[in-house]
Design a binder for these strands. Structure first.
Lengths: 238, 238
DNA sequence: GAGTGGTCTAGACCACGCA
DNA sequence: GCGTGGTCTAGACCACTCT
């Protein structure tokens, strides 16, 4: 069955296998997986063991299960991808979907800090996406997004990026985002910040430094977001 | 076993029962629950069904299970209670534990907004705890904490509060905190803010408006925290 | 009616903690 | 060595979806 050393429970082995099949593209987003019974037969384990693996993946939002239909690889719809972890809302609580504004992408050497945060797999080059985003048609958010150039070949050619970024990562680069970690602070708008989103120098901005992790717990994106929180609220739920 | 209408799965009924026993004080924090087998016999369900309920409660941090020992009602240690949901850290990532500074508690009528957010059960009175907290012996955090007076009888007499608040809620008022929801924005320090934590008027502050929920998903606390993020970072993980 | 996931059971064996 | 939780199995029946 397994050597005692380095033993992993069967259901975790099943979990690992299916995760790697998803990240290898054997099962694509939206696609239906074989039924529990079929998987159990293929893998020579009981249905209960398969279920435990699938249930874990469901709670991690990697899969979606629908009674009477089947088990599906989760898709990142554009709404979900932005709001999935943390999102913006009106003071009255209704969710806000920022629209994309100006955007530029360039390739450059990563700074020491960026390479420390990102899991580049040895490569030194990164893409930097700079963009503004609009709330109610007014610029309110400044994003600087850094990703490994190695993992995102040809990203500059995709500009302007019209879909949500996490959707792009998934569909074009096979990167399945499952978690984020945010560091949040308050800063004063610099001259260039103020110009980009039409506020005075010295106005308060929320700064969010986010690391984004894929299905393998690898850090695939390092993002700095600055938000003018006049009339907007950043929400975190747990 | 159950009428088709209003049916709840057995494991959810078990879950509900144990949750209410914990909140009624039949099982106290730190106490050991009966074994799976004993519970199964008492409740006339299979061990697997009990396990599913206990596993859910474990993932919600209501219980802790230790192989070979037993299942225990979770306790809020003072470190965990502050850092459990979101916490403060140095720019280099090490966690910071703020110390309590000045504190005052008063009883008053709740504002419309507070009564809307809080689950007061009809009562109009609230306690407001105003306090500052120190980072590296310097005032850096301003808290305003509002709770229902009905649920927290005699709170003024407990001042100054030396333990972590969530620990107090649990030990003295039988309120078991299990989740929070934060709204975050950036503001400019007012004159009174500036005075309290020794910064200039107009400096940027992070403002966190938090609702805290107990084991019954009831909102038991509405808290406004203002943080001077010079040299401190507020961290959120998901 | 056939196929899917959802619930529930009964029983086996393993790994851990402790006396 | 005993009691605990952790893993795994095999099989039953239910509820939902689609044809």
């Amino acid at each position: 069955m397994a050597t005692t050393l380095g033993f992993r429970p069967l259901y975790q082995q099943v979990y690992d296998l299916i995760v790697s099949q998803i990240s290898d593209g054997e099962y694509r987003p939206g696609e239906m997986l074989p039924s529990e019974q079929q998987l159990a037969n293929q893998l020579k384990v009981s249905q209960g063991t398969v279920r435990k693996a699938l249930d874990t993946m469901t709670s991690e939002k990697i899969l979606e299960r629908r009674q009477g239909k089947g088990t599906f690889v989760a898709t990142q719809t554009s709404e979900r991808s932005t709001l999935r972890f943390f999102g913006f809302s009106d003071p009255d609580g209704t969710a806000i979907m920022p629209q994309n504004g100006e955007e530029s992408i360039k390739r450059r050497k990563g700074t020491a800090k960026e390479l420390l945060q990102l899991d580049t797999g040895g490569s030194q080059d990164v893409y930097e996406i700079a963009r503004t985003r609009l709330i109610k048609n007014k610029p309110a958010i400044i994003d600087k997004i850094v990703v490994s150039a190695k993992s995102f070949q040809g990203l500059t050619k995709r500009s302007p990026i019209n879909t949500a970024l996490y959707t792009l990562y998934q569909e074009k680069y096979g990167i399945h985002v499952i978690s984020t970690s945010d560091e949040i602070s308050a800063i004063i708008a610099s001259k260039s910040d103020a110009k980009k989103i039409g506020i005075e120098v010295g106005a308060p901005l929320l700064m969010i430094q986010r690391r984004t992790f894929d299905i393998h717990k690898k850090c695939v994106e390092y993002r700095t977001t600055k938000v003018n929180t006049q009339g907007i609220i950043y929400t975190a739920r747990i």
